[in-house]
């Protein structure tokens, strides 16, 4: 059943996400191609362009996230809900399918963002194609992406919970939107507080030194990072440049934990407390 549902949910959502991705790549191409012309004008302009680009990428990421919530909402709480909830499919399977599809589209969005940036770098900055990925994927970026992934799981699970709560038996009126938003805010606040606790204020976080990319030398090229465990966190040592990066397993585990809690709560609501009006 899950496979069939996945197939259906993917086709249900594919059009929008693929279209968004295509638009983003197209914009990236346009920006990359025109940046040469812009480059001639003013030296400072390129930084403004980069800023706009960043905003564009962030904007698209936000749009993707919003679209994920729209997908969930539309599947269950629009007319389509009359179909979803009356299929001979368990609520747990339904929820699992929506989560998997959502995470898949999130990863897709990340990929599109990366490809878009790569296009800019290759075309606009004139970096050789085979150098792009080492340039972009230094350890810092990878760690950020990993953190982002766990944050996304937690955020998506939380939003699903809020949307489901708003359409549950507990709320009859239009203020459900506001109340579920408040609940989400409180839940997030609680989560952040626990995460800070786990991180321990007393543990200093080292600053990450940037590697000079223009020299054409990257850490991955020269030095094989040594991996060790320190204070329960996965630490990547870099001898020559002496920088440390923490992959914070505590935070990521907490994110996963909060996601699991939100998912369990959503499952309960879907099973026992749904109210489709």
């Amino acid at each position: 059943m899950l496979c069939r549902l996945l197939k259906h949910d993917f086709t249900y959502s594919a059009k929008t996400f693929l279209a968004m991705g295509a638009i983003a790549i197209a914009i990236a191409f346009i920006m990359a191609i025109t940046s040469d012309a812009i480059n001639q004008m003013e030296g400072d302009f390129i930084y403004v362009l980069m800023m706009v680009l960043m905003l564009g990428i962030v904007g698209m990421a936000i749009a993707a996230i919003v679209q994920i919530f729209q997908f969930y909402h539309r599947s269950f709480f629009s007319h389509s809900g009359y179909l979803q909830f009356t299929l001979p499919v368990r609520r747990g399977t339904q929820l699992a399918s929506k989560l998997i599809v959502s995470m898949a589209w999130f990863l897709y969005a990340l990929t599109v963002a990366v490809v878009a940036i790569a296009i800019i770098i290759v075309i606009a900055d004139g970096v050789e194609f085979r150098d792009v990925f080492p340039t972009m994927f230094n350890t810092q970026t990878l760690v950020t992406l990993l953190d982002l992934f766990f944050l996304a799981i937690a955020a998506i699970a939380l939003m699903f919970f809020c949307i489901t709560l708003a359409h549950s038996v507990f709320f009859n009126k239009r203020i459900h939107g506001i109340i579920s938003g408040i609940i989400g805010f409180l839940y997030t606040g609680l989560a952040m507080w626990v995460v800070n606790l786990l991180q321990g204020r007393y543990l200093a976080r080292e600053t990450i030194e940037r590697i000079d990319i223009n020299g054409g030398i990257t850490a991955w090229d020269r030095y094989w990072p040594q991996v060790g465990l320190e204070y329960g966190r996965l630490v990547v040592y870099e001898n020559e440049f002496g920088w440390h990066i923490f992959i914070d397993i505590y935070t990521n585990a907490a994110m996963l934990g909060f996601a699991a809690l939100a998912i369990a709560a959503t499952w309960y609501l879907l099973k026992k407390r749904v109210s489709l009006r």
């Binding site: 809900g81 909830f85 489709l276």
Partner: peptide, 10 residues
């Protein structure tokens, strides 16, 4: 009808 279909829980 919605109650029969499980669309209304309470």
């Amino acid at each position: 009808i919605k109650t029969i279909m499980g669309l209304l829980s309470d």
